[in-house]
Design a protein around this nucleic acid. Structure first.
Length: 441
RNA sequence: GGCCCUAUCGUCUAUCGGUUAGGACGUAUCCUUCUCAAGGAUAAAAGCGCGGUUCGAUUCCGCGUAGGGUCACCA
């Protein structure tokens, strides 16, 4: 790792004009992976030259999202803070005859005359080699003399991008496919300024169900919304990296470190991919399962801080087994776990298994109570072994259904042994007694 | 419409000229099971069309077709 003059610098250059979704952050993921893979630098550049639309809160959300995802950047710039540099190069372009001031009526119909700066397009054919797509050729005569500044003091997107990429030493511009048409313009400006062109890599788009570009108005959620739904950053990263790329092989669950290790930009796809929410959920579940018990418990506690810790510890494996995102725990009272927190309402009619007799169900419950009273509630397995001989003798459904329903108040629920274990002996027996009393009355 | 990009199961994808076209999500069925999940097993499910090149094309080339992106004094 000594001196390598070709060291890689990539950047993520969002404009803070809204909350960014998965499609946006995926370009950050690929830029990050490429930089880290090559021991290079990853830069965050806030493209806030449009002062009207840029908002501080959006910038903050970008930083927050990147931090949450663990996409650590080595440097951060704000384009607006470099306007002087942009102006310097703009002047150079004009001085060198590559750009000119053009007096034109404002497009807003106000009748005001503005002094736009246009790039003097020599109308050549530009070919660049995209790291993902190969050669892309454009005849720039279709572009005309495009505008590069609103005025001599207000440089616009294309100029700012080219100047900043140069000044920041960006070697690889990794961005969405929607930027392909911008590339020839930016190459033209770079050439006029005598800058070397970076390597371009245009990623396929992330699509919504209708196969058009993912967008907020199509329902794409900000990445922070997934955080708020209790998704794991590692799952989000894994998923984003896997839309449009995969390392080959059968394994699909990767940590960020593993992604860095296996990333290969030449294997990135050319065609767009639909954002598959169901697969994301599955992937998140897999990532939850790979967490340590401590991590799982601390995630669960974010939603269940008020609950008894001992009970939570015993319930944890069941929770992990049944959720695909921690956010499912926001409303415990409405969840399948509600009965662990408080005694459920029991519908006596439902205590009885199929068409067994109510008096018998009570008898079973009484017997189980006797059995449970003398054993140690050390694990669901122990409880199961204690109860099963009796249940088998009397009919499993006859015994187990009343037990499970009495404890949970739910026709569909976690198995009775786990319920007993989580509730503990005292609570379990108390619930059984209360149901027996109700049957009597 | 001009320019540009793309094309394997419903979806995400593997294949870098020769495979019974593989895997995953989802779906269905079965097993397990007192119920629901989870787990296990199985199944259905794909090379856009037509021409070339080649002994041989999903793979390479061309033409269609379809879809997408982009055409700002936004980025």
């Amino acid at each position: 790792m000594s001196e390598n003059k070709e060291s890689v610098v990539t950047r993520f250059a969002p404009s803070p004009t809204g909350l960014l979704h998965m499609g946006n952050y995926r370009t950050a993921v690929f830029s990050y992976l490429y930089a880290r893979k090559n021991n290079g630098k990853f830069i965050l550049r806030i493209e806030d030259t449009d002062r009207e639309r840029s908002k501080k809160e959006y910038e903050e959300n970008i930083i927050e999202s990147l931090n949450w995802l663990g996409l650590n950047y080595d440097e951060m710039y704000r384009q607006s803070e470099h306007v002087d540099t942009h102006k310097k190069y703009l002047q150079k372009l004009i001085d060198d005859g590559h750009a000119y001031i053009s007096k034109e009526l404002a497009k807003d119909g106000s009748g005001i005359e503005r002094e736009l700066v246009r790039f003097k397009n020599k109308e050549e054919v530009i070919t660049f080699t995209d790291a993902i797509r190969g050669d892309i050729t454009t005849d720039t005569k279709d572009l005309g003399d495009f505008v590069i500044a609103k005025s001599i003091t207000e440089p616009l997107f294309h100029l700012a991008v080219v100047v900043d990429d140069y000044e920041e030493g960006v070697t690889h511009v990794i961005r969405g496919e929607d930027h392909i048409p911008n590339t020839p313009r930016q190459i033209l400006i770079a050439r006029a300024l005598g800058f070397p062109s970076p390597t371009y890599a245009h990623l396929p788009l992330v699509l919504s169900e209708d196969r058009t570009k993912l967008s907020k108005r199509k329902g794409a959620l900000p990445v922070t919304a997934y955080r708020d739904m209790g998704y794991l950053p590692s799952a989000i990263i894994n998923f984003m990296a896997f839309t449009g790329w995969n390392p080959g092989g059968v394994e699909e669950i990767f940590t960020l470190e593993e992604l860095v290790k296996t990333f290969d930009i030449s294997k990135v796809h050319k065609g767009g991919a639909i954002f598959n929410e169901e697969k994301l959920a599955w992937m998140n579940k897999e990532h939850i399962r790979k967490q340590t018990t401590e991590e799982q418990l601390s995630s669960v506690k974010k939603y269940m801080a008020d609950y008894d810790e001992l009970l939570l510890n015993r319930l944890l494996p069941t929770i992990i087994d049944r959720i695909s995102a921690y956010g499912e725990l926001v409303n415990i009272e409405g969840s399948e776990f509600r009965f662990f927190m408080k005694q459920p309402d029991i519908d006596i009619e439902k205590v009885v298994w199929k068409d067994d007799e109510p008096s018998k169900s009570k008898e079973y419950l009484e017997s189980i109570k006797e059995i449970l009273a003398i054993i140690d509630f050390s694990s669901p397995q122990v409880i199961k072994e204690a109860i099963m001989p009796y249940a088998t003798e009397k009919g499993k459904g006859n015994v187990l259904w009343p037990l499970r329903y009495s404890l949970s108040g739910q026709e569909k629920s976690v198995d009775p042994f786990t319920i007993c274990y989580v509730l503990g002996k005292v609570e379990t027996i108390s619930r059984i007694e209360s149901v027996c009393n109700k049957i009597d009355s």
